[in-house]
Design a protein around this nucleic acid. Structure first.
Length: 274
DNA sequence: GTCCAGGCATGCA
DNA sequence: TGCATGCATGGA
């Protein structure tokens, strides 16, 4: 990959295995929206970004070189060899076809706190409604950084909220989980930064001490928000996929189970009957 | 009207 | 590595 830094834009040339729609709208992040011109706008780490693909290049606007180098490059996981990983994963027959069909899904390196909240909200819920609840959460408690764009609220910004406040946002019965989650993180009972340093099993066990966090929510948070690419979340769709792997996961998934999972999740939602 | 969604806590056996 | 049930909400 080659990076060109202009006055008000950044161009990425030869970025391999990177499809914007598949990556930004595949159920791992819920705050990116496609614009009428086909580009994608969103907020992460309190920063706005617009990104579009043009003739195989990726054009980033609304940001600067510093923010790109200190945040967005890692967020899009651009230094990882996804093309090479995909070649390994394609030793599995089902993934071989799936990766060919949906080539370019990457795992975003999202903020731990945002991922935890997001996947607590996601439980027994559908993607469209998840997006709505998160949008209202940000509009009500985040900081406005430009017209129509808000940051994801920090634990401190949510500290005064009660379950009733989250209920008002449409969170339903998950409102109580959110109140408890804010309390545990803002109050310091649980340290999200420390969890990043733990082995997968220990990290998961820490998250499981949170009210409203079970194995599936924990694994999604670990994969999308704590950098654990070996996490393999099993939701209702992935449980259907697992009938294709009666003997367990293939050896070629090793270390990148989460990337394999995201391809299979996408395949399941497009191909499997309920 | 019923069923379902990137499930979990709770109570019971 | 038990199982059944209730839970808020909105779209299909």
């Amino acid at each position: 990959m080659h990076e060109i830094f202009g006055e008000n834009y950044i161009i990425l040339k030869n970025a391999a295995c990177f499809n914007l729609e598949l990556t930004l709208d595949c159920g791992q992040a819920f705050r990116w929206t496609q614009q009428p011109d086909g580009s994608w706008s969103g907020v992460a780490d309190g920063k706005y970004l617009n990104i579009q693909e043009k003739d195989g290049d990726f054009i980033l606007t609304g940001t600067n070189k510093t923010d790109y180098e200190q945040f967005w490059r890692q967020y899009f996981d651009l230094e990882r060899d996804y093309a090479g990983i995909c070649e390994t994963l394609k030793q599995d027959a089902l993934l071989r076809q799936t990766i060919d069909d949906y080539y370019g899904i990457r795992i975003l390196q999202q903020d731990s706190w945002e991922a935890l909240c997001t996947f607590v909200i996601s439980q027994n819920n559908n993607i469209k409604r998840i997006r709505g609840i998160i949008d209202r959460l940000c509009r009500n408690y985040g900081a406005k950084i430009r017209e129509d764009y808000y940051t994801f609220p920090t634990p401190q910004q949510l500290k005064a909220c009660t379950a009733a406040d989250f209920y008002t946002l449409g969170a339903g019965y998950r409102a109580a989980y959110l109140e408890s989650l804010v309390k545990d993180v803002a109050g310091g009972r649980i340290d999200l930064k420390k969890i990043r340093q733990l082995p997968l099993e220990e990290a998961r066990n820490e998250l499981l001490t949170l009210h409203g966090v079970g194995v599936k929510v924990a694994d999604c948070a670990l994969l999308f928000g704590f950098g654990f690419l070996e996490a393999f979340p099993l939701d209702v769709w992935m449980k259907r996929v697992m009938t294709h792997y009666p003997d367990g996961l293939p050896a070629c998934f090793k270390g990148y189970e989460g990337i394999a999972q995201q391809y299979l999740f996408h395949w399941a939602r497009n191909h499997l009957q309920k």
